Amino acid sequence: MIDALDIDLAPVVAEQPFPVLFATVSGAHLYGFPSRDSDVDLRGAHLLPAADLVGLREPEETRSRMWDRDGVEMDLVTHDLRKFVRLMLRRNGYVLEQLLSPLVVHTTEAHRELAGHAPGVLTAHHAHHYRGFAQTQWRLFERTGELKPLLYTFRVLLTGVHLMRTGEVQPHLPTLVEEVDAAPVYLPELVAAKAEREHGDAGVDHARVRADVERLHTVLDEAQAASVLPDAPTAYDALHDFVVRTRLER
């Protein structure tokens, strides 16, 4: 494993044809269960010139770059700011986790301002994002029996519960285990096992984990029903103004 905060993105950022507004570490490092051979997932936003968005050609709104660093695969994916903000407004918890990740490897004032708008896009309907993600990962676990999708299943369910209860986006599984009373007690053991291998059988009692996953779905449903989060984003106008201003200032 590598220290994600030691990543020097300056040469990669300098190579990009458009300004990179931010890049943070996502994936297993952010979730608190990287393996020795985990890739490093870098996610963020860039800024296209205004001319690219008003002409006839379709803009390249998503860019990606992969490279190897000391035997570790690095994967940088960024969206144009407008696309990134639209994803934020679509109840997409994944991009909010990227925006708010504490593992920051490149930042700007625009990044900090955008993060400040995050509370204004949170809704009770973000529970649907985490519920759907959990279902997808659980189906993968049932097909493969591997530990990775099982941990993802528990992680997203607990993130959803925590968000509905507190209004905070918390993707770090070890922290969620401590803060969410419904978390299964054996999760720290699974996290420790994941640190040793990226892939492999989970080695768990399938009936037990199935019961716990079903229980957490119920807990998420109850947390959503009781949540004080609004039904719709409140920051749409402010984000529109932010995107326009940021684009025109460059």
Rank of each mutant, 00 (worst) to 15 (best):
residue 185 V to N: 08
residue 223 A to Q: 08
residue 90 R to W: 09
residue 161 V to D: 00
residue 74 M to P: 01
residue 213 V to D: 04
residue 114 L to E: 09
residue 152 Y to L: 11
residue 61 E to G: 13
residue 12 V to T: 12
residue 167 G to T: 11
residue 65 R to H: 15
residue 139 R to L: 14
residue 215 R to T: 13
residue 127 A to E: 00
residue 173 L to Y: 05
residue 186 Y to M: 07
residue 35 S to C: 11
residue 172 H to F: 14
residue 133 F to T: 13
residue 138 W to L: 13
residue 59 P to M: 01
residue 57 R to K: 12
residue 87 L to K: 08
residue 230 P to V: 08
residue 118 A to E: 06
residue 160 G to L: 03
residue 23 A to Y: 03
residue 216 L to C: 06
residue 177 V to C: 09
residue 205 D to W: 06
residue 225 A to I: 01
residue 86 R to M: 09
residue 84 F to Q: 01
residue 5 L to E: 11
residue 237 D to M: 04
residue 13 V to C: 08
residue 154 F to I: 01
residue 4 A to F: 00
residue 89 L to Y: 06
residue 75 D to A: 10
residue 96 L to W: 01
residue 40 V to E: 01
residue 36 R to D: 14
residue 169 V to H: 07
residue 7 I to E: 05
residue 57 R to F: 11
residue 88 M to W: 00
residue 60 E to M: 15
residue 97 E to Q: 13
residue 188 P to H: 09
residue 61 E to R: 14
residue 211 A to Y: 07
residue 129 H to K: 06
residue 119 P to S: 10
residue 215 R to Y: 15
residue 50 A to I: 12
residue 168 E to L: 10
residue 158 L to M: 10
residue 171 P to W: 00
residue 234 T to Q: 14
residue 196 E to S: 03
residue 8 D to N: 15
residue 120 G to Q: 14
residue 48 L to S: 05
residue 39 D to L: 05
residue 165 R to K: 10
residue 133 F to D: 08
